Simulated scan of single mutants.
Amino acid sequence: MKITAATVGAPCWVQLATVDPDAAKAFYTELFGWRVEEDPRPEAGGYCTLLLGQAPAAGLTPVQQPEQPTAWSVSFATKDADAAAAKVVAAGGRVLMEPSEVFDLGRFAVVADPAGAVFSLWQARAFDGQAVADEPGSLGWVELTTRAVHQSKEFYPRVFGWSVTVGEMYTQWGIAGRDFGGMADMADQFPDDTPPYWMPYFAVADVDRTAERAAALGASVLLPPTEVPDGPRLAVLKDQQGAVFGIHIAQAPA
């Protein structure tokens, strides 16, 4: 699916901060067929756009502080990053990086929900974000993993106006009549010191083959290819530097 403009409140960009950009470029270009385009401006700090064909699909940047972990992050589109950051605070969250200009591309802020799950806000100007979704090699889903399930059901709709669909095993987030993500309960499945986090899932043509290829390239398979009841076949992987992400079978167009 081609995207010509971001939907306000929906995920619009994912980016990887990594301790080894060169290794990450080699891994992800081989896994997803991405092409790397580095911003040549010195003040960009080595930021790269990862392209699927000609379409921006994700970003990649070196970590900015020594203590920063290698991880994927998710950005949500907003008309006004400052107003959205204020909503985050009013709903009990925190602003970790105040809204600031990114060249002429847009306005960006880093925030956290009340339980500590970190995400970003993007107010587009020259750059809307991803230009493709739900196709092999592009973002297909985002997922919050947290222990604060009930609190999150109140926080995110208050900030973004999301719909909440609660099933027996899983909660889904939606906006404008379309579900784009979900929420998993950490429960007792994670060590007590594991913080809540947002994670992207990328669509692929074949989950089993992609998981095998990722393992051959040095990734760890945290969740082997699995059929989800009433959902797609999926797997969860961790790259060599420690960034966790998911893959799921690309859905046929309706």
Rank of each mutant, 00 (worst) to 15 (best):
A252R: 06
Y170I: 13
A6V: 08
Q68I: 04
P232V: 08
A55D: 15
A44L: 07
E168D: 15
P232M: 12
A85T: 03
A215T: 13
R35M: 05
V142P: 04
L96Y: 00
C12H: 09
V132Y: 00
P40Y: 08
E154L: 15
E212R: 06
V95T: 10
F245R: 05
P42M: 11
D22M: 08
D104P: 03
V63E: 00
P40T: 06
D239N: 11
F108Q: 10
S73K: 02
A24T: 04
P40D: 08
G218K: 00
P99C: 03
S152K: 12
R209Q: 15
A126I: 11
D80H: 03
R147T: 05
E37G: 11
Q189D: 08
V236A: 05
R178A: 14
L222T: 07
D134T: 13
V132W: 00
D128M: 11
E30M: 06
V132S: 13
L60F: 12
V111R: 04
V63M: 07
D104K: 13
V132K: 05
P191N: 08
G181M: 06
A215Q: 13
V8P: 04
Q65W: 06
M1P: 11
A17S: 04
A254F: 14
T78Q: 09
C12I: 07
Q189S: 11
A91R: 05
L237F: 05
E98I: 03
A6I: 07
A81E: 04
A211M: 06
A124K: 00
P191V: 01
E38V: 15
F76Y: 14
E43T: 15
V159R: 11
S75E: 12
P224F: 01
V89T: 15
V89P: 09
Q15T: 10
D230R: 15
E67C: 02
A77I: 09
T70A: 10
E154I: 14
L217T: 07
K153F: 10
S73F: 05
A243E: 00
G106Y: 01
Q130L: 14
F127L: 02
D239S: 04
P21L: 09
A5M: 10
G93F: 09
E227F: 07
G246L: 06
M1T: 12
D128Q: 15
D134W: 08
W162N: 00
M1I: 14
C48L: 12
E67D: 12
V164E: 03
P200V: 07
S138C: 07
F32R: 01
A131R: 15
R209E: 14
L50W: 00
W198D: 13
F32L: 11
V164S: 05
A126Y: 03
Q172G: 06
W122V: 01
V102P: 12
E30C: 02
G93T: 02
Y28R: 02
P200M: 09
P40F: 12
D113G: 13
T49R: 15
T210W: 08
F127V: 11
F27N: 01
L234A: 13
A10F: 10
L237Y: 06
T210S: 08
A235Y: 04
G246F: 06
V111K: 11
G9R: 01
A17C: 03
S138I: 13
P195D: 03
G129C: 10
F32M: 12
V207D: 07
G116T: 02
A216R: 11
A83R: 06
E43R: 09
A71W: 08
F155W: 10
A235I: 06
I249E: 15
L96P: 10
W122Y: 06
E67Q: 14
W34D: 11
V14M: 10
R209M: 06
P40A: 05
